[in-house]
Design a protein around this nucleic acid. Structure first.
Lengths: 150, 150
DNA sequence: GCCGAACATGACGTTCACGTAAACTAGCGA
DNA sequence: TCGCTAGTTTACGTGAACGTCATGTTCGGC
């Protein structure tokens, strides 16, 4: 059994590896509704994923780790993302009219804005912490220099 | 019963409030050795804390939340901090000789460097995520503009 | 066609980080 | 002194996020 199925698709082990986690976690997330319930299950019943799926899961892990989200909070993000994905499907399938197009894009923009606001706040807090630590280190460094010149 | 004892010291409730947590958590941290075991317990047996203690606890919470540290990892930081505090005490009490002083300061600097490396990495990851989201939003925004001009 | 590794489901176990309840004591304003 | 709030310890409970085990099935190379 090779890691990637002949179709170029990934089984749960490979998906987990690429996302930096374990198969158990993938199944758990699926159970919670964080991942699509039946990602193409041919005959055998084994789950099969695309590379896109792998990127998606990896992105979720990243978001969760960096923002410190609970799985429930992550669920909210996923829901919004799925709504966006549906709109995107309509968008790529050739959009009906211009008004509808703007509606879709506006929704997408709003969703990104929401995530951005979370990320920006967190980033700002971290940078503030970094600045604090740096100024404290500078103070120590200054004392060291003074001690050396004597 | 006022929030602050007449001595200007804080009881556990006030400390928790200022640190943005609960008394239970404070006791738990003390039990784990994250906080000094007996912060001055006069007659009654009630814990009493200084404003400095409050700042310290708040700082620990901040570090933990922003870096996503477990309590065990936080313990390592605290240990290093305590070693530094001992050195600092010696430092403020008038340092013996210049060599010893440099030793102390070098230790302190190393400790801060360690924390800084953690914070910097985390901050970099968050900024990278922020950039990703921003570029995706820019793309959507561009599409919106194009749709408007037609 | 066989065989070992990887998958499936289900159930139970585990760790972390506290929450909560019970029974008692201390501090403080009226 | 009374009464109320906030503290004390001990112990058991809890939710989140998986880990682990048992039992059976499926791939895919040989």
């Amino acid at each position: 059994m090779t890691a990637t199925a002949p179709s170029g698709l990934l089984r749960i082990g490979e998906l987990a590896r690429r996302a930096g986690t374990t198969p158990r976690t993938i199944r758990y997330y699926e159970e919670l509704g964080l991942l699509p319930n039946a990602p193409a299950r041919p005959a055998g019943g084994h789950r099969l994923y695309s590379e896109e799926d792998a990127r998606h899961v990896r992105e979720l892990m990243r978001l969760r780790a960096l923002l410190g989200l609970s799985l429930e909070e992550l669920g909210a993000v996923v829901e919004a993302e799925e709504a966006r994905a549906m709109l995107r499907a309509e968008f790529e399938g050739g959009v009906s009219d211009a008004a509808r197009l703007r509606e879709i894009l506006t929704q997408a923009s709003g969703h990104l804005d929401l995530q951005l606001s979370l990320v920006r706040r967190r980033a700002a807090e971290l940078v503030a912490l970094q600045d604090d630590l740096e100024s404290r280190r500078a103070r120590v460094e200054r004392l060291l220099a003074e001690s050396a010149e004597s």
